[in-house]
């Protein structure tokens, strides 16, 4: 019997939940297919299909969906509205299945929900096609395995691995260890901006080549981040925004040389978080570089700023040592 192929776009929340999705569908006896890393064709397809207002990462998601729809039987289009009580993911994630339908046309979609009434890990949140077509015991078992995989994945990242490295380690069973060296640099932003090497022109690699150890928000446990943000006069209700601000504060405490903030052009929540990060970095005297990512981000300007920022950090170190 031919196994049903589930297409999973390597975009948006894939960088946070991807391994759990893969393991779940695998356990259900289906074949999860993950799209390749973003490239020019994916970007162009996404930009063409999307409405003008959405941010670049959503366009990228649509690009991934478009390029893989012919290779799979169903596309996974998560509708993750809320994953923690009282907090939300950006509203654009709410309309993701509809935006995908509009862009891709009439392919079959699996909508995996998560909102304030049903958490993504509950039976009710799963796509209807799954819950009605399979024995409940099997679904429950698969879900349990998926959650265990997610936990292991996040533990690996908290051990210092980047999402891609952690995913490879998890699924291939190898156990690479993260190198620990100085100086460290903080890289903050939404996971889909930081870990998509195409849209950020390989920032992580660039920073590593320049001799910096790169810290990202995924390396800090949610507990620590929550603890760090207790003193805010009003809780931030964007889950991803919390991670950015909390990780920023933790990075500062860890003594990073500086912080690079990659934000997506036209990202609403970031307009706010960015300002908070900017003010705190100024008060702390921590060098901060804020860069916007969009589909026509001039490579030259991006690299120039990045180089200048790294020079600034290096010169600062050199002269403060003397």
């Amino acid at each position: 019997m031919r196994r049903i192929k589930i297409g999973i776009p390597r975009a948006l929340l894939y960088f946070w939940y991807g391994p759990a999705w893969r393991v779940f569908f695998q356990e259900m006896g289906l074949t999860p297919l993950v799209s390749g890393p973003t490239g020019k064709e994916i970007l162009n397809a996404g930009v063409k299909a999307a409405v003008e207002e959405v941010c670049l990462p959503v366009k990228i998601f649509l690009g991934h969906s478009l390029t893989m729809q012919t290779q799979c039987d169903c596309l996974l289009t998560p509708r993750y509205i809320s994953v923690n009580k009282g907090e939300f993911i950006c509203p654009k994630f709410m309309g993701l299945p509809e935006m995908t339908r509009q862009a891709v046309g009439t392919g079959r979609q699996l909508i995996w929900k998560s909102d304030h009434k049903c958490h993504w890990g509950s039976l009710k949140a799963l796509p209807r096609e799954i819950t009605s077509g399979y024995a409940q015991s099997r679904v429950k078992k698969s879900l349990k395995k998926a959650k265990a995989a997610l936990e292991a994945y996040h533990l690996l990242m908290q051990g210092g691995l980047l999402p891609l490295e952690a995913e490879t380690a998890l699924l291939k069973g190898s156990q690479p260890s993260a190198a620990d060296y100085e100086p460290a640099i903080g890289l903050i932003g939404h996971p889909y901006c930081l870990h998509d090497a195409f849209i950020n022109l390989g920032t992580v690699q660039l920073l590593r080549e320049q001799g910096f150890k790169v810290l990202v928000p995924e390396m800090f446990p949610a507990r620590q981040i929550a603890l760090e943000l207790r003193d805010l006069p009003k809780p931030l209700f964007w889950t991803l925004g919390q991670r950015i601000l909390g990780a920023f504060r933790l990075m500062w405490k860890k003594g990073v040389a500086g912080v690079v903030y990659l934000s997506a052009f036209a990202c609403g929540p970031e307009a706010l978080i960015g300002e908070m990060v900017k003010r705190e970095s100024k008060a702390a005297g921590l060098p901060l570089l804020q860069l916007d990512l969009d589909e026509h981000s001039g490579e030259a300007g991006f690299i120039t700023r990045m180089e200048a920022f790294l020079d600034l950090l290096k010169r600062k170190r050199r002269y403060s040592c003397v």
Binding site: F309, D311, L312, K316, Y319, S320
Partner: peptide, 8 residues
């Protein structure tokens, strides 16, 4: 004598 910030 050290650059601490820049804008462009």
């Amino acid at each position: 004598g050290v650059a601490v910030d820049f804008g462009m």
